[in-house]
Amino acid sequence: MAKYKALSEAFIPELPNYYQGKVRENYDLADDRRIIIATDRISAFDRILASIPLKGRVLTQTARYQFEKTADICPNHVLEYPDPNVLVCRKLEILPVEIVVRGYLAGTTSTSVLTQYKAGKRQMYGFTLPDGMQDNEKLPRAIITPTSKAFDGAHDEPLTADDILRQGLLTPQQWEMVSDYALRLFERGQAIAAERGLILADTKYEFGTDKDGQVVLADEIHTPDSSRYWFADSYRAGQRPVSFDKDFVRNWVVERCDPYKDDVPEIPEDVIDATTKVYVQAYETITGNSFDAGDASVDPLERIRGNLRSYF
């Protein structure tokens, strides 16, 4: 593969109302539209680990495929894609709860069911899990494990349905709707994955409300950043299946430090190059389409600026 320049930031001064997220640059237009530019930054453990060339392009195009495959289940925020890294969408009021759906006893973060299970917890997120489960074992049924949506560097915290309603984070109607949407989206995502020889083990969804109060799917969907995918032919309960999600980088970091407390070592170039290949492989496996990486000689930020000129 040709050497591609990473899009580490995407500040465009001609665009209004700039806001930088962990991995995306956002611009709010005056007509209730938002421009979201996916950079190549990779985030885990509540910090930026590195920039992975082509990552933003992969995620935008993977999400585009999945939004189109699930548009019959619930409304989403997509309006148009003026560039491979860019989504123009409806501006939403994001709901303060991140909806995580899990089909397996898996995960590495402090809020994952496997981490809590191995620490001795059996009751979590309003569910009780049986004793004796193995790492990565399939759960009796898919469960929703919501967390608070952390802002300004705070940590996500586990929530139950009772917590959400008692704290007034969502109305009962909103909770019922996002729960129904999330489980149906996950079922569809698992079916699409199975057609490609994959297992969708878990994923996260973000929902918001539009100016009319309608609940709308936001952010991304069923990408290798928001989801844990395993190759089905490698799956055995009790073992670590072969994956191509962020654990590829996470595991390298965890082997060398405590990422919640220590400085993270610089990710070496060979790991970055390998991760780019993993993301491209993920797109092609998840969608069944060949990935168009574009022209390596073109600076990605200049290309994006050109494609967004009509919004200046």
Rank of each mutant, 00 (worst) to 15 (best):
K138A: 15
R141Y: 13
V23I: 13
K138C: 06
N17Q: 08
V101M: 02
P224N: 08
R122M: 04
A30W: 08
H77K: 04
P268R: 01
C89E: 15
I35S: 02
V242T: 15
A232F: 13
V97T: 04
K149E: 04
Y104C: 00
D83M: 04
T111A: 03
A218T: 12
L165F: 07
D245M: 01
V249I: 15
T276I: 03
V278P: 09
A237G: 06
G153F: 10
V58Q: 05
G103Y: 07
I192T: 13
K261G: 11
L198F: 12
I52D: 05
G120E: 00
M1I: 10
F244W: 11
P268K: 01
C74S: 06
S110H: 14
R196D: 09
K211N: 11
M124I: 06
T109W: 07
E80F: 07
D32A: 12
T109E: 12
D156V: 02
T39I: 04
R34C: 14
L87N: 14
A274L: 07
Q123L: 11
A154D: 15
D292L: 03
R33M: 09
G189P: 10
E157I: 08
K91T: 13
V280G: 11
N76E: 05
D162G: 09
S8F: 10
R184E: 14
D295E: 11
Q239Y: 10
V113C: 06
A194F: 10
T209N: 08
K55A: 01
F231A: 04
T115S: 14
A154E: 14
D28N: 10
S112C: 01
V253Y: 12
V264I: 15
W175K: 09
